[in-house]
Amino acid sequence: MTDPWTLTAAEGELQILTGVGGPAAKMGHRLTIAMASWRADVQWRGKQPVGVELVVDVDSLQVIKGEGGVTPLTGPEKGVVRSNALKALDVKKYPQITFSAEDISKTEAGYRLDGTVEIHGTSRPQTVDVAVGDSGDVWVMSASVPVLQTQFGVKPYSLFVGSLKVADEVNLRFTARHPK
């Protein structure tokens, strides 16, 4: 039995990348949002991962940057974006996002995790392909997963009667390093 791994924001990043939609989309910013507090526990049987549990603290959401838009995204605007995102995610009622992988299979590039994600109180099946690379003394892991907010009861933020809105599909990007 191999010791379990615990990965946190100290070993990697968990980011959300958004797009913009609507007739006034050129006015909006494509956002990079970081989740600053998360924990992934990986269980092993020999050299094979057999379970993964990820817990993300929604209140740790931080707006890193905004690309595009008519003007650059300022510090105060980042605060407004954060507030709107926490309201849309109803952080007081749903303080965590979770993913639990019950089935893990080896792939050419790493592992396929089949499990359940819970966002905003709604659970859905989710598959995550994790690429794993050997970087000498560390394992490097990465994954990118598209998620439709509306499938989890999250209403994408919009302005001007919907003529400018956050795109329904966001992309979750995960990277981490673990010593061998």
Rank of each mutant, 00 (worst) to 15 (best):
M1P: 14
T2K: 12
D3P: 06
T8H: 03
A10F: 00
A10H: 07
E11L: 02
G12R: 04
G12C: 05
L14T: 05
I16G: 05
G19V: 09
V20F: 11
G21F: 08
P23R: 15
A25D: 09
M27L: 15
G28E: 08
L31V: 10
L31G: 11
T32I: 11
I33T: 09
A34C: 07
A34R: 07
A36I: 02
R39I: 10
A40C: 13
D41F: 08
Q43P: 02
Q43Y: 00
R45F: 04
G46T: 04
V50P: 13
V50T: 13
V52Y: 01
V52R: 03
E53I: 07
V55A: 13
Q62K: 14
V63H: 04
I64H: 05
K65R: 15
K65C: 12
G68L: 08
G68Y: 08
V70H: 05
V70R: 12
P72T: 13
T74P: 12
G75M: 11
P76S: 06
P76F: 11
E77S: 12
V80L: 14
V81I: 14
N84G: 08
K87M: 13
A88D: 05
A88I: 08
A88L: 03
Q96R: 14
I97V: 15
T98L: 03
T98F: 04
F99R: 00
S100I: 12
S100L: 10
S100N: 13
I104F: 07
S105R: 13
S105F: 09
A109K: 15
G110D: 02
G110L: 02
Y111V: 01
L113N: 05
D114Y: 02
T116R: 05
R124L: 06
D129P: 03
A131R: 06
W139I: 04
V140C: 07
S142T: 12
A143E: 00
A143K: 00
V145T: 03
P146M: 01
Q149S: 06
T150W: 10
E169H: 04
L172N: 03
F174T: 02
T175Q: 07
A176Y: 02
H178R: 10
